[in-house]
């Protein structure tokens, strides 16, 4: 076997060991080295040079990037997730014919969909969806993300939140939490506009918090401008901060009419 490949494989073993130990600092350090080492392999996309160990190298590289994606979820780094996912993607699309399918493929694709949903990048979400095959759409991980998006769009926020309990993969939890936060932000935004104030009880129900305590924490962190008084949450101040500008319609109409008159006079 190619010495370079052996070296990378050994390095990867060390990475996996650290990964299992949840020693994320070591993981990150090793991953960076691994990625640099991977640039030496010419069989990897986008070059796809047919070297003798091509399949092996491709599989290894894919494995590394899959771990990288999972790692980024574990250390809760969305940017790293995006970066690693894009580098992993060619292994699922362009290299599909060159190496056996990976067990991690659908969970990771689903994760990515979830990420897009969390980041509220709906357009990209649908673009990704279009690229998936019919069998992929049947997959539980993908289905989960698709259903979530539907609920989200319908405004069935309680379903979104309850879906947290039915995640198909442990890594999803992170994004599900984020999603709950996104949903809550949506609801909070709407409530602000819709009501002057709400009783704490109602507010807790609307914002889907299991306890008042959590509601208070949320308000403290995300909406310090809300006031809690006499068992009510008062949104008023937020309203003042965004005064609605009135369109000076009468003035405009007057102006336009005078222009028209004068124009007629000139001509």
């Amino acid at each position: 076997m190619d010495p370079k490949l052996t070296e990378v494989s050994q390095q990867f073993e060390r990475f996996k060991a650290a990964f299992i130990r949840n020693d994320f600092d070591t993981c990150e350090r090793l991953l960076s080295q691994l990625k640099v080492s991977l640039t030496q392999f010419r069989s990897l996309p986008p070059l796809f040079v047919d070297t003798p160990n091509a399949t092996h190298e491709l599989t290894l590289a894919r494995d590394i990037y899959e771990h990288a994606v999972v790692l980024s979820v574990k250390i809760e780094d969305q940017e790293a997730f995006e970066r690693d996912f894009f580098q992993l993607k060619p292994y699922y699309t362009d290299a599909r014919g060159r190496l056996p399918p990976s067990a991690q493929e659908y969970p990771i694709l689903g994760l990515n969909l979830l990420r897009l949903l969390v980041q509220n990048r709906i357009a990209e979400f649908h673009t990704e969806l279009e690229l998936l095959s019919a069998t992929a759409l049947e997959n539980l991980c993908i289905k989960h993300a698709v259903e979530l998006e539907q609920s989200f769009m319908e405004g069935a926020y309680n379903r979104v939140l309850s879906a947290r309990q039915t995640v198909p993969h442990e890594t999803y939890v992170y994004f599900m939490d984020l999603l709950a936060k996104t949903v809550r932000d949506e609801i909070a935004g709407c409530s602000e506009k819709a009501y002057d104030s709400l009783s704490i009880n109602d507010a807790r129900r609307i914002l889907l918090f299991p306890s008042d305590q959590e509601l208070f924490e949320y308000i403290k962190e995300d909406h310090p401008e809300w006031e809690i008084k006499n068992g009510y949450v008062i949104f008023q101040r937020a309203k003042e901060s965004a005064p609605c500008k009135e369109i000076p319609s009468l003035q405009l109409i007057n102006q336009t009419l005078s222009y028209a008159r004068e124009l007629e006079r000139i001509v």
Binding site: P46, F48, L88, K89, P90, D94
Partner: peptide
């Protein structure tokens, strides 16, 4: 590259 072409430069850009 002429034989197999990646479909996107996204990976590289990332």
């Amino acid at each position: 590259a002429a034989t197999t072409m990646v479909s996107s430069a996204g990976g590289l850009l990332a």
